[in-house]
């Protein structure tokens, strides 16, 4: 993997701070495993809503989640959840839920026993009711009395999510939560997490699958080689990456004439006629989008469609990892 373009990083990291008070905070956090730097000088703040932690395998996503859940201590910098450092402080789990990535659960228990045990460990006033509510949330009621060892990977994931949700945590940390889930389970889990985010919970989930993050997350934290490569809304991040031209696909009544008109604009780096329409590479997103309609009108060209073809998260991610 090549390094992130230095020019892209500072621009992308100027994404706006969350408007609501930060619940989760990383302040210049670094973590080493021996001589290996897993997380390198990361600062971020998260408030309520769903945040996707995106990065290739080995980028440091799990390390970030383990630092947040107190299962690793920062080698440098500070980590807080609700103002409290989680390291050596298990009481944070009164308000935090964790879904670890690894498939290891108490496989000899049924899902109902597992979730009920979690409710009791949280000392909930009515653990049975809380366990049933959590099992219902993940649609596991019907299979709840089977031992977990008989479950598919997706069902195990749902049982783990139910156990993490049983005390209705304010902060939910999920490490690759969609692993092994079939499309229907995945959709349901996304709806559940989205709903929790809308109800003011702070949800942070890691994934190396762009489509999952794009569909679910309000904001993304892109981690590459242990560094925070970008932070915020991915469309905003893309626009801040000013060293990269923005690619649009235009369809008009006269693509050839439109190409000639646009090439006169300093905001346009290049155009190409394709079978799908006119592909335009704009160096200045703002100027191009502001002037496009006026240029078409002045030239007497009917503009039918404007498609930003590299504003997907996949495109942003490809730029950031230099792929």
């Amino acid at each position: 993997m090549t390094a992130v373009e230095p020019s892209a990083v500072p621009a992308a990291r100027t994404a706006p701070e969350p408007a609501t008070p930060a619940v989760v905070s990383f302040d210049h956090v670094t973590h080493w495993y021996g001589n290996v730097v897993a997380v390198n000088d990361i600062s971020l703040e998260l408030g309520p809503g769903v945040t996707g932690l995106l990065g290739p395998n080995g980028a440091g996503k799990s390390t970030i989640l383990h630092l947040l859940s107190g299962f690793l201590s920062p080698s440098r910098g500070s980590v807080t959840i609700g103002g409290v450092a989680p390291w050596r402080h298990p009481a944070i789990f009164d308000t935090v839920g964790l879904v670890p990535e690894r498939d290891s659960v108490y496989a000899f228990l049924t899902a109902r026993e597992f979730v009920l045990a979690s409710a009791k460990l949280h000392k909930l006033p009515d653990p049975k009711a809380a366990a049933e509510r959590a099992l219902q949330l993940v649609e596991m009621i019907d299979a709840a009395d089977r031992p977990i060892q008989t479950y598919s990977k997706g069902m195990r994931q749902r049982a783990k999510v139910a156990a993490a949700l049983v005390h209705d945590p304010k902060v939910l940390l999920l490490d690759e939560p969609f692993n092994g889930m079939d499309p229907r389970q995945r959709m349901h889990m996304m709806d559940l997490l989205r709903d929790l985010g809308q109800r003011g919970r702070t949800i942070l989930f890691s994934s190396h699958i762009l489509e999952e993050v794009e569909r679910l997350a309000d904001t993304v934290q892109v981690v590459v080689a242990g560094r925070l490569a970008a932070s915020g809304d991915y469309r905003t991040i893309r626009r801040l990456m000013t060293t990269r031209p923005h690619v649009f696909l235009l369809r008009s009544t006269d693509d050839r004439e439109l190409a000639r008109v646009l090439m006169a604009s300093p905001a346009v780096q290049g155009v190409a006629l394709t079978k799908d329409g006119l592909e335009v590479r704009a160096s200045d997103h703002g100027t191009f989008t502001r002037k496009l309609a006026r240029s078409c009108r002045d030239a007497g060209i009917g503009l039918r469609e404007v498609i930003p073809s590299d504003e997907s998260l996949e495109s942003v991610f490809a730029y950031l990892v230099g792929a």
Partner: peptide
């Protein structure tokens, strides 16, 4: 060894 202890430790139970 198998990391199932995480489910126990990800609770407020004192160590």
């Amino acid at each position: 060894d198998d990391n199932s202890v995480l489910h126990l430790l990800a609770t407020p139970v004192p160590r």
